[in-house]
């Protein structure tokens, strides 16, 4: 899935993240609309919507007759419930691809790569029962980054932190050594819109779904997780700054509303 999205967004990798976001939102709007049309009972939906329009007309015509207005409102409510019921199946069908898309967008657009000269924290957690003072963890940095502090060991939290500094752009590595194993983890010092893995854990179904493509920590490692503190990314749409999530939600819905007239979807 990560490979598929990387291929899909390849043309936007080196450009502005906004272009990729607009493209994926447009595509999502179109695909979701198509799925909605495919999985919903369009005829029934059309009838329900017509009924709602009719009840509104009824309310306007008999606005002086309170009992009729109340009855119309009750019918509108009931018709709305019917519409929602008809939308349940398409929504259930759509939720799966939407979640997968959200996971992929989160990988690409929730964090920025590190700039040259900037620093980040590498935070490693050890498995319960491992004593950090007797079981030291070491960090080495590949070319392009340097270790900017010794380890800060916090035995009470089972945590050890380092500060690293970027000296060259690119995708670099930190190597964590626990005495027996060495684990290489990527550090992204790039402006490209590529998946930026900020958390690494041991393999599990949850990790495979929600952190796809990220290198896994070996099962036998004393490390239970490693996090890298990348700066958060937000989209500046001139009038407003939005996170990737709200940007995607608003733009894809806007495209959906526009395209529904093209695809004639109820």
């Amino acid at each position: 899935m990560t490979g598929f999205f990387s291929l899909l967004l390849k043309p936007f990798e080196n450009g502005h993240a906004h272009a990729g976001m607009l493209f994926i939102s447009l595509l999502t709007g179109a695909v979701m609309l198509f799925l909605f049309k495919l999985t919903s009972n369009q005829e029934a939906m059309k009838q329900v919507k017509n009924k709602i329009s009719a009840y509104f007309l009824e309310m306007r015509l008999y606005k002086d007759d309170i009992s009729t207005v109340m009855a119309s409102q009750r019918r509108i409510l009931r018709a709305n419930m019917q519409y929602m019921k008809l939308a349940v199946i398409p929504a259930v069908v759509m939720i799966v691809p939407v979640v997968l898309i959200l996971i992929q967008l989160d990988l690409r657009y929730s964090h920025m790569g590190l700039g040259v000269g900037s620093t980040a924290i590498v935070k490693a957690h050890v498995a319960e029962g491992v004593d950090l003072m007797t079981h030291p963890i070491h960090l080495r940095a590949s070319e392009g980054i340097e270790k900017a502090s010794p380890a800060v060991r916090i035995p009470a939290l089972g945590e050890v932190d380092w500060k690293i500094r970027v000296t060259k752009p690119g995708v670099h590595e930190v190597i964590l050594a626990d005495g027996t194993d060495e684990i290489n983890l990527p550090i992204f010092a790039t402006t490209r819109s590529i998946p930026i893995y900020s958390k690494f854990a041991k393999g599990s179904l949850f990790e495979s779904i929600f952190n796809p493509g990220a290198p896994r920590l070996p099962v036998e490692s004393v490390l239970s997780s490693v996090e890298i503190s990348y700066p958060e990314m937000s989209f500046n749409w001139r009038v407003i700054h939005l996170s990737w999530f709200w940007s995607f939600l608003i733009i894809s819905m806007a495209f959906g509303v526009i395209l529904k007239f093209v695809f004639k979807v109820e």
Partner: peptide, 27 residues
């Protein structure tokens, strides 16, 4: 959080975390 041996500390303010060496200014 102070490292038990090294002259370095981690400062935490709500969601913000930073590491400072002794005699170092933060951003």
């Amino acid at each position: 959080y102070l490292d038990p041996d090294f002259p370095v500390a981690k400062i935490v303010i709500e969601d913000t975390e930073l590491i400072l060496n002794e005699k170092e200014w933060s951003d």
